[in-house]
Simulated assay, not measured.
Amino acid sequence: MISWKAPLALAGARWAWSRARRRYGSAPTPEPARGRNLELLAWGAAGAVIGVGASALSERRRSGLMSGKVVLITGGSRGLGLQLAREFGASGASVVICARGQENLDRAVAELTGRGVDAHGVVCDVTDPEQVETLLDEAEQRFGRLDVLVNSAGTMLVGPQDALTDEHFRQAMDIMFWGPFHLSRAAVDRLRATRGSIVNITSIGAYLSVPHMLPYSTAKHAWAALSEGMAAETAGTGVRVTTVVPGLMRTGSHRGVLFRGDPEREYAWFALAAGLPLLSVSVERAARHIVHATARRKGFLVITPTARLGLVARGIAPGLTQEAMRLVGWLLPDTPGQVEERLGSEAGDSRLGRVVNTVAVLNERAGRQMNQRSRAEEQREDRRTGERSSE
């Protein structure tokens, strides 16, 4: 639910203006100009009060939407996961977030606490089943219950398949299939006690396999199948499974994505598509939709008109959709003779990258707001965390 204060106030004022125009337009004799202006001003003020009052009521309902609930969010230290933690917290929930790096996690928890959110952070690698059990135990020990599990952790690699290795596919599957698999199966029994929910953040890439993002699409496709299957098999248990299908979101992730093949050209098309307002949606809007769907225990949520159009096109004309994807693949950069690899933070500093960044300014801004850091920074943090744990 987005903030409707300004739109509702304007709508109320417009209603008052229309009413006054109809009244005075049909009057047989005009009233004195001063009296008319005063009455019109009164109507406008009344309309604005109505608008703001309705919006305030909506905000109050939003603030109590998840009151008393405990929400666990993987990948909650940045990007969509962090914004979901903010939004669930604003809706009254206590929040547990997990991430692999301690520094990133501490920064996110401090920011959430500063917003008045009852937040707790746990270092956890979701690909490790033992750490998953520890994560669930700590969440329950801290808050006494678990009502919602949000599987939001993910990773992204962009480049032609000829430039990718088997290990790239294994990493994607570990994080975006086996991670949600182990965590969801371990959480189901705990969620039965609270009639809770599992929320799986998949992607339009799970249903439309986008060229040059094959590991991501493969893992997301498996994740979507797992989510929809669990939704069917938990019927009658009191547990609700929500499958979320976002389209492109402005999370600033392009700066931390790894690009292979021709990194500068790969960065250019990806950052441009992820940052254009007509193709992408703000992460704040996406998070509000997800929290609203969770509170109402919806089974399936598609975010953005572009994603809906893609699902409809695939369902009605799968062959034509496949041909469209082939055309997209033909337009994207070829595999160069010498494969190179760069982070988005590096590729974005090229001449081409700087040009793209001026167009995708909204995505650049989102990266700063969503605690996004480059993979190099994360790897350094992971090494420091490993060194501390071995001492």
Rank of each mutant, 00 (worst) to 15 (best):
I2A: 14
K5H: 15
K5L: 13
A9I: 14
A11F: 00
A13L: 10
A13P: 07
R14Q: 15
A16R: 04
R22F: 03
Y24E: 15
T29A: 09
G35Q: 13
E39Y: 10
A42I: 14
G44K: 12
G47L: 02
G47Y: 01
V49G: 12
I50K: 14
I50R: 15
G51H: 00
S55C: 06
A56R: 13
S58W: 11
E59T: 08
R62N: 12
K69Q: 12
L82Q: 02
Q83T: 14
R86C: 06
A90N: 09
V96D: 10
A108P: 05
G114H: 05
G116W: 02
D118A: 11
D118T: 10
A119D: 01
V122H: 00
V123N: 08
C124F: 03
D137W: 03
A139K: 05
Q141K: 11
R145I: 02
R145T: 01
D147A: 00
A153K: 00
G154T: 01
M156E: 10
V158N: 11
V158T: 07
G159C: 04
Q161S: 15
D162S: 12
A163P: 03
T165M: 09
F169G: 02
F169S: 03
F169M: 06
R170F: 04
D174M: 00
I175F: 07
G179E: 01
F181S: 02
V188A: 02
D189W: 08
D189P: 06
R195V: 09
N200E: 13
I201M: 06
A206G: 04
L208G: 03
S209L: 13
M213V: 05
S217K: 04
T218I: 07
S227R: 05
E228V: 07
A232C: 10
V239L: 05
R240L: 10
V241C: 03
V241G: 02
T251V: 04
S253W: 12
H254M: 11
L258F: 08
F259L: 10
R260T: 07
D262K: 06
P263I: 00
L272G: 07
L279W: 10
S280P: 04
S282V: 09
V283M: 09
A286M: 07
G299P: 06
A307M: 05
A307F: 00
R308N: 11
I316C: 06
A317V: 11
R326I: 12
G329N: 06
L331P: 13
P333Q: 04
Q338F: 09
E341C: 10
R342V: 05
G344T: 02
G344Q: 00
S345C: 10
E346I: 06
D349P: 02
S350G: 05
S350H: 04
A366D: 02
G367L: 01
R373A: 14
A376D: 15
Q379A: 15
E381M: 14
E381P: 11
E381G: 10
R383D: 08
R384I: 13
G386C: 09
